[in-house]
Amino acid sequence: MRISVDAGRCIGSGMCVLTAGEVFDQSEDDGKVVVLRPEPPAESWEAVRRAVDLCPSAALKALA
């Protein structure tokens, strides 16, 4: 799995951090998403998919 982010869309809701904190973080400056693990391990895939679905601004994609 590979994660792609459209940072321009991110509104800094933190939903991804809340849902898959081992994969996503937020920048200290502007609150936007920071991907810690662009190729997350298999045990995180389910949480990542949930985060992609929950993102309020459709800023995340997970390419399987």
């Binding site: 800094g12 933190g14 951090v17 973080d25 937020q26 920048s27 200290e28 502007d30 609150g31």
Partner: peptide, 8 residues
């Protein structure tokens, strides 16, 4: 404001 209301 967003950077001031992050999860962390």
């Amino acid at each position: 404001l967003v950077g001031k209301f992050t999860v962390r």
